[in-house]
Amino acid sequence: MNILEIEEVTVRFGGHTAINNMSLEVPVGTITGLIGPNGAGKTTLFNVISGLLPPSQGEVYFDGHKITTIPPYRRAQIGLGRTFQRLELFTSLTVKDNIRVAAEIRNQWSLGKNNDSRLGLGGLTIQEEVEKAIELTGLAGIADRQVTEIPTGQARLVELARALTLRPKLLMLDEPASGQDETETERFGNLLRTLTLNGIAILLVEHDMGLVMTVCDLVHVLDFGEIISIGTPEEIQTNKAVLDAYLGSES
């Protein structure tokens, strides 16, 4: 079963086609990698899925519903979480408050909806949920620091923790490992694996090929706004089209 289906999406900026008639599926409980050279359309695709950018053509289906035209906040409410390549932290708040406000925002919109998505009623309180997210992402040591003071690698974890408080069905991570060192990246990979065990599907845009190759179940390679190849990490690493896209064609 697929949690996300993209059908023939096209995005044009003026005369430039950023995404060309692209279709893509993300199965439940898997990590799907999205790689490709700069300007291939990865972040644009993310913006289309999360609703920050309407596609020129095509449809987006999430969990069986067509979500092409609904606003970003409604998409988040039905279980679509994401992080940003260029950090979008709440810079005036501490690490903990960044996560806490996310939990509080969720409590806001789950008001009046089914109660099991609401914190503090039977299940975890906001406090507990925040602590759980902090523990999971390993941010306990810096929970009270201002987010402007922590290194980028950890700031990316804050964004992840924040997205996790949504209890998303699909998590979209935009270059989560950039700014992390090797050990951090390795730990991060393990964390992603743990998350999928809980049934979360992950769509991962990443330049750190080490991470992509170790955690992804399936990798999609984008170039010029099109998917040029799909395969397991091993297949991708030896695919000639992929090498050409990255290194330029051998002439």
């Binding site: 999360s50 609703g51 920050l52 606003p71 970003p72 906040y73 409604r74 998409r75 988040a76 409410q77 679509l80 979480g81 994401r82 940003f84 979008e88 932290l89 709440f90 810079t91 005036s92 708040l93 408050d97 806490r100 406000v101 996310a102 509080e104 925002i105 969720r106 409590n107 806001q108 919109w109 964004e159 924040r162 997205a163 408080t165 949504l166």
Partner: peptide, 24 residues
């Protein structure tokens, strides 16, 4: 309060607020 934190969040990053489900 929670309300105040949400205001701060909205001021700091509207895009993040939207993707966390906030109706700004």
């Amino acid at each position: 309060s929670s309300y105040g934190r949400q205001l701060t969040a909205m001021k700091d990053s509207p895009a993040a607020c939207a993707t966390l489900g906030m109706n700004m």
